[in-house]
Amino acid sequence: MNKALFASTMLRTYKLFSIFTALILFYLIVIISMFSSSAESDPFEMLPEAMRDAFGMGEGMSGLTGFIATGFYGVTFVLFMIILCIIAANQLMASLVDRGSMAYLLATPVSRSKVAVTQASVLIAGLFGLVLVSTLAGIAAVPVLIENADFNRSAFIQINIMGFLLFFVISGYAFLFSSLFNDAKQSLVASGGLSAAFYLFQMLSNMSENLEWLDYLTVLTLFQPTEIAAGEADIWPNAIGLGLAGSLLYALAVYIFKRRDLPL
């Protein structure tokens, strides 16, 4: 880790993280305020059943927490975070190599691994900050927006922790591709393609029982907001698995970046 580089990279990327934090907060608050406990109504009822299944909304809602888990963490949160991870990871490594400005960073006594670790720290810190802010905002917003809410705060926090760990892994492979390719476009295509495939697998598996085996091919399976809200999930195995996978991906990214030829 290099402090000067960390501060400078933070200064150049905080805008991106801020925009996504604002978007995510906006959607979270809108979803919370859409909940009306009296009617137990489901605003997603109007969607065709197949579509609800695809988005993982088939489980039904268990109170406000389940409503937020399905309505926000099931789709919107995941999509925004995937996009953020891909853009941010690409900016932090591949685009510096592609444009050539990495040459200036490596022309200092800061080693390649330190540069990579620092850039990775900015990504992880940004994602963590975003999830932390939206967790706190969610907890603060519920009593203001909903009277007598039946809100399971601990489940909500667990959902956010698991969400962060999921994107620790997704940002991990995005960062790996970003460290691997000389061309920023290739890095974007690789991490975008893999993420799209993961998302598609999850949708298909939700839609048809015959395709449920696709669950094993996507990392998104390990994030189960609805089950956590319903109190049906044992989060520890998934949390440990995601934590290990993410650490491994980041470590591999640093290792590869340290050893490869750079066209600077």
Binding site: N2, L5, A7, A103, Y104, L105, P109, V110
Partner: peptide, 27 residues
């Protein structure tokens, strides 16, 4: 070593002074 690359490309979104402070900080 002091290095002047053949192709000039600085990190985006900085001014000259911020860039030079970054390099000074890293050094």
């Amino acid at each position: 070593v002091g290095y002047l690359p053949g192709e000039i490309a600085f990190p985006e979104g900085m001014n000259g002074l911020q860039f030079l402070n970054l390099i000074a900080g890293m050094r």
